[in-house]
């Protein structure tokens, strides 16, 4: 008679509960949608949480204009399929100044993503924003609550977090303050892949290996996704069989050489690999070991 729920069933139920609590208690929720695999799972969970209604909040994509083209394609498709409103925000200041990852380094992330996100939240007056961060990703994430409070200026104070007991979340806040909510906090990379596999969730094809034009920069294998990529005189991109473990701005995201072309193969490769998924992300290496903690205090997701 008694049935034991599997770990994925328990994680799914917990995430759905979190999504519904926020919708019930917040005034203007929004889902930060980055088009990656974690966003894909979070969006799928939202569709399950409110079925047969569409999720009662919009999707917000804070665009840097430097994402992979395949990401823009999937983004527009998923917005159509879910019946949700898609808001795309680009920091006008970054756009006017032509901020890009090739010339501006850390400033690129700061202006397009951190500042862009803050501007978008302020512009629309969102008081609760879902994000797809997981606690197994990075050390400061492991210490963040599921409901993470931000001051009116979007700052995070790791030493002043509210205790979170049982499944009771305190969503009360003063005017101007906001909450970032991480419904998939307790999922691991393997859980995400397995859930995508079991639920047949659409993801960006770049996660699967294929022959793609690449160049090497600072030990990273980068994909030449469009003609904005500055090549050295005489340099010709090399076609390699590659795929991506995480997706961000294409000039900042390192590929791995791989032949994994199906989901089980991707999972197999992940389980046998010896490096962590964020290893290909330049963003974590800024400001030494405390890179993400510092960014979060400044308002980054």
């Amino acid at each position: 008679m008694a049935r034991i729920l599997t770990h994925l069933e328990r994680l799914e139920a917990e995430s759905i509960h979190i999504l519904r609590e926020v919708v019930a208690e917040a005034d203007r929720p929004v889902m930060l949608y980055s088009v990656g695999k974690d966003s894909a799972v979070m969006l799928h969970l939202a569709r399950k949480a409110f079925y047969p209604s569409p999720p009662p909040f919009p999707l917000l994509h804070v665009d840097t204009t430097w994402k992979f083209r395949a990401m823009y394609d999937l983004r527009d498709r998923m917005a159509r399929e879910s019946g949700m409103e898609l808001l795309v925000y680009k920091n006008p200041d970054a756009e006017a100044r032509g901020i890009n990852p090739f010339d501006h380094g850390a400033l690129h992330t700061d202006m397009w993503k951190t500042e862009g996100l803050k501007q978008a939240l302020d512009l629309y007056g969102f008081d609760a924003a879902f994000g797809g961060a997981r606690r197994d990703e990075e050390k400061s994430r492991a210490k963040e609550r599921i409901f993470s409070f931000r001051t009116a200026s979007h700052g995070w104070d790791p030493k002043n977090q509210r205790p979170e007991l049982w499944h009771l979340y305190n969503a009360k806040k003063a005017k101007g303050e906001s909450i970032r909510i991480f419904p998939i906090s307790n999922w691991t990379e393997l859980d995400i892949w397995q859930y995508i596999h079991l639920n047949d969730i659409p993801i960006v094809p770049l996660y699967f290996s294929a022959p793609r034009p690449t160049v090497e920069r600072d030990g990273m294998l980068l994909m030449v996704d469009d003609d904005r990529f500055p090549l050295a005189p005489g340099e010709v991109p090399v076609e390699r069989s590659i795929r991506f473990r995480t997706l961000g701005c294409y000039p900042l995201t390192g590929a791995v050489e791989s032949t994994a072309a199906t989901l089980p193969q991707v999972i197999q490769e992940m389980l046998l690999t010896t490096t962590s998924e964020r290893q290909g992300r330049a963003i974590d290496k800024d400001a030494g070991g405390a890179g993400m903690e510092k960014k979060k205090q400044e308002g980054y997701f």
Partner: peptide, 28 residues
């Protein structure tokens, strides 16, 4: 590995609850 925040690494203490994940053949 687990003292994640810069503040605690400097002081050599753990200041907040942190969640970790691992799995074996039988359990997560």
């Amino acid at each position: 590995l687990v003292d994640g925040l810069a503040a605690e690494r400097e002081q050599g203490i753990t200041i907040d609850v942190a969640y970790r994940f691992f799995s074996t053949e039988n359990r997560k």
